[in-house]
Nucleic acid binder design. Sequence first.
DNA 1: AATGAAAAGATTACACA
DNA 2: TGTGTAATCTTTTCATT
Lengths: 153, 153
Amino acid sequence: MNVRLDDVDRKILKAMQRDASQSLDDIAREVGSSKTPVWNRIKKMREGGIIGQQTVLLDAEALGFEACFFVLIRTSEHEADWQQKFLAALQARPEVQEAHRLAGDIDYILKVRVQNARAYDVFYQALISEVRVFNVTALLSMEEIKSTVALPL
Amino acid sequence: MNVRLDDVDRKILKAMQRDASQSLDDIAREVGSSKTPVWNRIKKMREGGIIGQQTVLLDAEALGFEACFFVLIRTSEHEADWQQKFLAALQARPEVQEAHRLAGDIDYILKVRVQNARAYDVFYQALISEVRVFNVTALLSMEEIKSTVALPL
DNA sequence: AATGAAAAGATTACACA
DNA sequence: TGTGTAATCTTTTCATT
């Protein structure tokens, strides 16, 4: 499904990224339109998959997730079978918040959010016992300087 | 402000992470409580900063953001003054979705979301002209295997 | 394609158990 | 601390321009 977006659509998305709890009236006022057209545009963008999940951002530290690691992975295995298994392992683990397949000599990067360093080790041991990897480097975050899910529309 | 959380609070947070557009009634049913107590708990958690921004996740590719880079940065400068300037530069650039200060020999990692490789180069040139950095490695994402903001509560 | 009205549903506040 | 209820606001639909 392909949705063509104009300037008003983009403004709506911007407003919703910033605060998805606002009323239609507020969004309509902000983008210089009114309720019904804004509602129709949002509906279309939801159906077209442009707008996905509506969620809340929680305070990780306050909830006891005090450690965040970026994990660089090199592998020697590149068969479809191995990849399948690796992918399934990542999907199954909720502490993996992000996983990307990379270009270049590092094959994968993960972002892993856990309670503490011990919990990371448990995750790491479990992962390498499930799938063979050649080399793993863990980068420990000391400080989250910036964190946003907003696209720079 | 310190909020002590019980099992019901955690269930509420889980439900809201998954879908923040549900009604109070739906959440109350899911956690085995009713409207008013759930509303009071959510209010307290908002005030306590446990629950932050409410947002929508947008389809980056569909909106023309086809490139995602993880940028590893080493610097030789560690004065407060330099750090201040670097931090301000990152905050000011909307293409920087994440920035972490790291332990170990890599000092910073960034996640940068841009339209294409050219746009990354523009970002990169602008950044290194603003602040001195010793060494920069860009890892290009070929495929977003997994992406979630949900904490594994 | 936008406006406005009207029905259905959700949030917020508060009284009472 | 939870239940029920009532007022207010929001979403959703639809007729009309």
